[in-house]
Nucleic acid binder design. Structure first.
Lengths: 202, 202
DNA sequence: GTCTATATTGCGATAGAC
DNA sequence: GTCTATCGCAATATAGAC
């Protein structure tokens, strides 16, 4: 069965925007790659920017789902929260391989309309992690002098950097099927080990 | 004293390319902001891309310096190597606040001519850190089952992510003068703690 | 070394036929 | 819903005066 023009445009745009950036991709290239007429971009999405916004919102569906889940079923402990968060992120990276690229791209070179979308989700994740770390410090799990804001950035960096640089990283090392999951497992371990309160130093 | 057109163009281009990306900045905007005639871009740099390349190469001067220093005066131990590396990176971030942006921007959306520049430096850093981790594992400093490649990505993520997202990060938290150094100090601590071999678990 | 003027190409968007 | 044709504009780059 043949996909309709709208779907083909979204799928093609996701790839091209992620790989080349919003301004580098023209609607002509987009239409050619998707094998549809370029006038259909205006017809379905109003403009090139409208198409981009649709792509961007689609990228965040799984993040929204995860955040909803954490609100409905809060994990038992801070360590469990962070572990579950990391595992979710690993799965999301598999299903939305370009998500981090879009986020970083927007952070570095914000586009007018969509800054609001990105910031909305980032601030929700930020608040969730902040509360989790706060709780963990209060419970004595994490180092008491830990700067929470910094720790959040470190966690974000350690969990996401791999997926930004994955293509270039694979040029320097060997690869495997489940490399993303393997990476996140070690990264989470390093981070948790790094912020854990060491009983023997008390 | 008045700066010459060439210098003004380089300085303006560094800012604009970093903030908006190569394709979003036009030579007209560049010339207007630098208060020089737009034809001078071709005159001095051959093309917009030539100007970009010049900007990019300038960004890596301090990285090259650091790598040369590590070759000439190798640190005494792996832990010292990584600590010194982190401190150097923190200083470089202060003096070249856009460096990480350029690197990440090139990784996400590579431009034709300059991919070679970026990859050259990344691979040199990668090799240095790989050797350092190898040595540290052999010496029993770091966890013996550590995946070296992953650890390098984690270190890069933890050290650099802050500087990509700094503007947006500052919207979520309070700031101070030396925030970059404060961040890198905690991040390095977290990372080293995270990969250290724990004597009490032997 | 710096300017104006312009050649050329490609862009995003739309009108209107089918 | 999809097409062709085209409008208006902005892009990079360059020729040639000063």
């Amino acid at each position: 069965m043949e996909k309709d023009a709208r779907t083909k445009l979204i799928e093609t745009a996701t790839q091209l925007f992620a790989q080349k950036g919003f301004n580098t991709v023209s609607i002509r290239e987009l239409a050619r790659t998707a094998k549809v007429n370029s006038a259909l971009i205006s017809y379905y999405f109003g403009s090139k920017e409208g198409l981009y916004q649709e792509v961007l919102e689609e990228q965040f569906i799984l993040i929204a789902q995860m955040l909803r889940m954490f609100e409905e079923i809060p994990p038992a402990s801070p360590i469990e929260s962070i572990t579950l968060y990391a595992k979710n992120i690993a799965v999301i990276h598999q299903q939305r391989p370009y998500l981090t690229r879009f986020i970083i791209s927007e952070i570095i070179n914000p586009t007018p309309c969509c800054e609001a979308v990105i910031k909305k989700y980032i601030s929700r994740i930020f608040r969730f992690l902040h509360a989790t770390l706060e709780e963990g410090i209060a419970a004595g799990d994490f180092k008491p002098d830990l700067n929470r804001d910094f720790a959040i950035v470190s966690l974000a960096g350690i969990m996401n950097f791999f997926f930004i640089g994955k293509p270039i990283f694979l040029e320097f090392t060997s690869s495997s099927e489940k490399i993303g999951e393997e990476y996140t497992a070690q990264a989470l371990d390093t981070f948790l080990n790094g912020i854990l309160r060491r009983k023997e130093h008390e």
